[in-house]
Nucleic acid binder design. Structure first.
Lengths: 149, 149, 149, 149
DNA sequence: TTTT
DNA sequence: TTTT
């Protein structure tokens, strides 16, 4: 099947500080959730707030960038692709979790904004190169095997 | 939170014929899965096939278009946004399913291709207008309450 | 020709304050240029700066939003479509200018940032709705008839 | 200026057969125009046809793919970025041409469709890898120096 | 569960 | 200059 496209663009805020982990094969990986605002004005003209949460997965050099320079509350742009992985819960039931495998992460707010964690105080280098991540295996990420959404 | 973006673009093939349903409030809705090809060439130069499946939800006039003119195997373009909804399984456990709420559906292969179902024999009108779906509530779709991924 | 897509996404900074104008038919319109950074690291590891400039055109309510709340230097997100219009220069030669007709404009930096103009001091309302602009006629914009790039 | 995005997505039909050329530095390059349909229904319910033409530039391996397997009338998907280059017309006046530098080209209609040229009869290999083109210099393309839009 |  |  040659004709295919799987592309996601998000702008939103990190729900927590990204924490660096490693896959069983030693690849750096970072997971965090990202909030997008889906608020709208209803028929009565009243503003309704609604937040959508997305699970972001970042590998390799960009994972290290995230761990070093991003933190909870930061506004970022994410380009990536959708991937749904299968896992087993404690009852042995198959579950599915959909994640965005990021190919590009870009901080949008000024450095030092929204930061409570010490890792965000260092000067942030530029991080704009797109990287071909190749096939990724989030399921082999240490400590993620039983993670619910 | 003003700054926000939640955008998905997919090109892929339908896994089954779309079937028209109605939300409890009477809105036309269609669900189908879409396959994107994530095949790649490994380090040994060997081709590895991999398919990613996406759950697509379409409302209103575009839902009727899908039910009337699309069918299993058709190649389509989808523009939409990510939404994760919560549901309870038989054990009373909370589960999450991520779907793409489509705002635009576009058939890419010539009409009449890949069709085995009778609904696809009628001439297909153009269907290119983008429609603001507003807030959507897939959870209120009749018969979807217990649907696993 | 049913199958068609024409979509542009930009994140960049305004080159000047947007100035509100009106088409001959009375539609509010705003034009400004937007800079995207295309810098890269050359083979010698040296950083090369390069800026790409884009002509943005915004109509109707979003035009008024831009005129009222944006200013030179602000970081924004633009979603739109490409359009090339024809015009005649003083020598009577046909020229072409390619513009991005914006369907969505979103400020990304905190309100009050980078602002030197008085129009940006008022509190900015949210501006996230996508608006179907319909067919647009930049050529009928008063004072744009002879505008070079 | 770290935060930046310059992304274009197009689905349309080739206006002519792509012809392979080489930059002065020996890079394969292909130029062709792509038509997107901007037709709409006016207030009287009458269908208005409108076509937008885009200049596409493709480099390296993807240029060879285009020259070998694409032809006039084929439906393709293009992912790329906007670039405006400066050139001098016969009167010595500076002119600007905006092009889409493609990073990914994908044929959407079945192989062998719409082909009148002999180069499209060979079996088409898959061509889905995204390629980092790096900085590109369309201005140095042989024979393009004086090309009007 | 699609397709080439 | 494409196509349905």
């Amino acid at each position: 099947m040659a004709a295919s496209l799987n592309k996601v663009f998000l702008i939103g805020r990190l729900g927590q500080d990204p924490k660096l982990a490693y896959t069983t094969s030693g690849m750096p990986v970072v997971n965090f959730s990202l909030a997008t605002d889906e608020g709208y004005t209803d028929k009565n003209g009243k503003r309704v707030d609604k937040t959508e949460w997305h699970r972001i997965v970042v590998f390799n050099k960009q994972a290290e960038f995230c761990a070093n320079y991003l933190s909870k509350g930061r506004l970022i742009f994410v380009e990536g692709r959708l991937q749904t992985r299968e896992w087993q819960d404690q009852q042995g039931q198959t579950r599915y979790t959909t994640e965005i495998i990021a190919s590009r992460i870009q901080a949008l707010d000024p450095k030092g904004t929204s930061t409570t964690s010490p890792n965000a105080t260092a000067p942030a280098p530029e991080q704009t190169e797109e990287e071909d991540l190749g096939p990724t295996f989030p399921s082999e990420v240490a400590g993620m095997d039983d993670a619910p959404f």
